[in-house]
Design a protein around this nucleic acid. Structure first.
Lengths: 106, 106
DNA sequence: CTCCTTAATCAATTTTTTTTGATTAATAAA
DNA sequence: TTTATTAATCAAAAAAAATTGATTAAGGAG
């Protein structure tokens, strides 16, 4: 099957992909996760569990949503998973003004 | 009770308000509604019902969500309600690149 | 190997959102 | 006044998303 480039994506697919990304942003906890990760440059699940007082399974759940939407990158090191902001995707998606709220000085 | 300015809003409130706006954008139908309204400058519910092949109650439901998030303006004329894009809010929220997908040349 | 830590996943439940069809209210037209 | 049009709202049902606690798997330490 041929690769689908941006230019050959139809409007419907494009809007669906966009909606997925906004859905990932559509939760205050997930926005806070993005903010926390940004402030630490990179964070593992246990860091966030502690900082945000959320159970591990909930963190993993929300991180997966952000990861699937392409807003986070993940790097496994041993038993740890380190998550960081995909700044290119954030910049592509949201305004500078809002970027400064979610990922100040990132 | 005193008015709450942007500067006195705490981070929690700010993230919740932002999440509400992204929630409004987190649906391909609503993105399409924004796009359709933009292309016509202004549209009433019956226009959109016809163009998008959606029942009236569903349109009104989605329009209300977009309106509550501040992404649309509404003007009643007789029995009609005309909706238009709140471009200031769109610009404040999303990147130029994405603005061009949702509201091209608006 | 055994024990401990880390994090992903799972299944069941709860909560939220969306859909549907009907009703209501307001205005306009005949 | 009667009839038709427009759109908001409502209540019930369906669908989707989030929460919870437990289990699993993979590494690292002793």
């Amino acid at each position: 099957m041929a690769a689908v480039s941006e230019s050959t994506k139809n409007k419907k697919d494009e809007l669906e992909e966009l909606a997925l990304k906004y859905k990932a942003l559509a939760d205050p906890k997930r926005l806070e996760i993005l903010n926390k990760i940004c402030l630490k440059s990179s964070a593992c699940v246990c860091d966030l569990t502690e900082e945000m007082d959320l159970p591990q399974s909930k963190l993993s759940y929300h991180l997966k949503i952000l990861l699937n939407a392409g807003l986070l990158d993940k790097e496994a090191r041993g038993t740890w998973s380190f998550y960081s902001i995909n700044q290119r995707e954030m910049d592509r998606l949201i305004s500078n003004q809002i970027c400064n709220v979610i990922t100040p000085s990132c």
